[in-house]
């Protein structure tokens, strides 16, 4: 059966490559493409503004969660859950579940009644508003049922078939994204909410990455600083392409072969920063 799915997945990807390029604006297609209720996938703009400190401080009017794509709205009032141990001896922390976890998954609106067709294929009506752009997933290597159960309400399952709650989606992501998961567990990836002190509370992966198209979208930046008189771009400021070659410190320059100096024995590089330091005499004095 698995073999069959993989084979079909290959066919689907080939068919997909020949077809027209998929639409890139997820929300707008989703909103106009069908009469489905996509409210569960709406952005975060209308999320209530609350204080995330958990300490009763004054809200500064900041959005409750990041405004990126169709991400899940974190539910700060939800009871704490036990966190899965992804790594041995990892620190303890709470993961904030998302608000639409219980029973709000739009697929289950139909698929709790209608059987799913498990065959990987190019999606047609009424699924054409749905976009799967998750790295290899979009290229047909993965499919709905890589992560979702075939039966019931389309809950999550691991690659080994264990059932998972939506609130524990990070377990699913960490099966492939091990580096990110490690960083997330130890605090170098992801976002810590509440304070820097006390029990650590972090957002789930799906609070920032929309699971079916995890790449972050571009957006308009907030306004920059006012240009004070005389403090604009300096007169020598030129676009990168128009700059003289010597002005660019590039990675290639850093990678050039190190040459030991005959007299001092110091290693110098033909181009790059090390060289200029030696020329300035900074190194020779010390």
């Amino acid at each position: 059966m698995l073999l069959l799915i993989v084979l079909l997945a290959g066919c689907w990807s080939a068919a997909g490559a020949a077809g027209p390029p998929p639409a890139t604006s997820g929300t707008s297609t989703a909103a106009t493409g069908s009469d489905w209720d996509w409210s569960g996938f709406s952005g975060l703009d209308d999320a209530p503004v609350t204080d995330r400190s958990g300490r009763g401080g004054k809200s500064t009017g900041l959005p409750v969660a990041p405004k990126i794509g169709e991400t899940a709205v974190p539910d700060f009032d939800a009871p704490a859950r036990k966190t899965y141990a992804l790594f041995r001896g990892m620190p303890s922390f709470d993961v904030i579940p998302s608000q639409r976890d219980p029973g709000m998954h739009p697929c289950s609106n139909c698929h709790q009644w209608v059987l799913s067709d498990p065959r990987p294929r190019k999606l047609k009506q009424p699924h054409d508003n749905f976009e799967l752009q998750h790295g290899l997933h979009g290229k047909g290597k993965f499919w709905c049922f890589t992560c979702h159960e075939l039966s019931g309400k389309g809950g999550l399952k691991t690659l080994e078939g264990e059932k998972l709650e939506f609130a524990d989606a990070y377990v699913l992501c960490s099966q492939c994204h091990v580096d990110q998961a490690r960083d997330w567990v130890y605090g170098a990836h992801g976002k810590r909410v509440s304070g820097w002190q006390d029990k650590r509370q972090v957002l789930n992966c799906t609070a920032c990455h929309y699971q079916h198209r995890p790449a972050l979208k571009t957006r308009t930046p907030e306004p920059g600083p006012r240009v004070r008189m005389g403090l604009g771009r300096p007169p020598h400021w030129v676009e990168k392409d128009k700059r003289p070659e010597a002005d660019r410190v590039t990675r290639a320059a850093w990678k050039t072969e190190a040459v030991p100096d005959e007299k001092t024995g110091l290693e110098t590089r033909p181009e790059g920063r090390r060289d200029s330091l030696v020329e300035n005499g900074d190194d020779e004095k010390s």
Partner: peptide, 10 residues
């Protein structure tokens, strides 16, 4: 007071 700076929060 144990909170995060506003920039981190935003």
């Amino acid at each position: 007071k144990g909170r995060q700076p506003a920039c981190q929060e935003a």
